[in-house]
């Protein structure tokens, strides 16, 4: 009886794993299938011959390396800027009791609740006279703002995990508050900072709506913009599209490994974000 239960449990886990991985597996499978086998072996689980031709083409003869680079720049800049701002603000929320604190948290929470898509039009209008449309800087500014609230909650939860005694001890030992923050609190929050960078990077790497709206030229396109325009133009080059998709997957998966340990904390802090 117990053995059957255990077996059913393992089987259920396997079904979940299969469901989670199958789409990604298919992506990889098509990306290594030679063009001549694409349709004839359409639903075979693995092609009879494999090729890296699609990857070679995408890397050498397409704009995807450029898109990749743009996305990397935008995502890294967003991650570091948002984490820095959120670090300070999260510290204030965690450590100070000040009038207006509830208002600030409330404000941060509200920004997580309203539909961001309704900002598409006004942000475009406001950024274009500043020359920040069709610009990676503009994209970074927008992404930083979108990710700061969530990163604040995340950083706050990391700061909350560090006993107040430590900085009080440092202040008695002769440090100023900022000195205690820099010398005692920050080093202890490093893993949390890394996790926050990872979360924000993942979010920025995935963002599509505002990139579509704000970016108009190929040179400034981020990965999703580039991939979607490629899809609409060359919608039969499945091998190449999926090879490009695999490329988009790589940094996201790397950062996923980085933040895996902090998923629970991240998801609770940004329960509304995802």
């Amino acid at each position: 009886m117990r053995a059957i239960g255990t077996l059913a449990h393992r089987l259920a886990i396997l079904v979940y794993i299969a469901f989670a991985l199958f789409p990604l597996f298919w992506l990889v499978k098509v990306s290594v299938t030679p063009n001549d086998l694409l349709y004839s072996e359409g639903i075979r689980l693995w092609p009879s011959r494999t090729t890296f031709e699609h990857f070679r083409f995408v890397l050498a003869h397409s704009d995807f390396p450029l898109f990749f680079r743009n996305s990397l720049i935008v995502s890294l800049a967003t991650a570091f800027a948002a984490t820095t701002l959120a670090g300070f603000a999260g510290y204030a929320l965690s450590r100070f009791a000040f009038r207006g604190k509830l208002t600030v948290s409330g404000l941060l929470l509200v920004t997580q609740m309203f539909p961001l898509v309704m900002l598409v039009a006004p942000i475009f209008k406001l950024l274009s006279p500043l020359g920040l449309t069709n610009s990676l800087t503009g994209l970074v500014v927008v992404y930083v703002a979108f990710n700061v609230p969530f990163a604040c909650f995340l950083m706050q939860s990391f700061f909350d995990g560090i006993p107040r005694d430590l900085e009080e001890a440092a202040m008695i030992d002769g440090a100023s508050r900022f000195g205690a923050f820099r010398q005692i609190i920050l080093p202890l929050t490093l893993p949390g900072i890394a996790a926050t960078v990872g979360f924000v990077f993942t979010a920025a790497w995935s963002e599509m709506i505002f990139a579509l709206m704000l970016i108009s030229s190929n040179e400034k396109a981020t990965f999703p913009v580039g991939l979607l325009s490629f899809v609409s133009k060359f919608s039969v080059d499945f091998g190449q599209m999926m090879a490009a998709g695999v490329l988009a997957l790589i940094p996201a998966c790397l950062f996923f490994l980085l933040i895996q340990r902090y998923l629970v904390q991240g998801l609770t802090a940004g329960a509304v974000k995802g």
């Binding site: 006993p163 005694d165 430590l166 001890a169 202040m171 440090a175 100023s176 202890l188």
Partner: peptide
Amino acid sequence: APKARDIAMVFQSYALYPH
């Protein structure tokens, strides 16, 4: 400020700097 008072304090949690 605490740092200007020239006092030392031993905390219940010890508050040792872990790093």
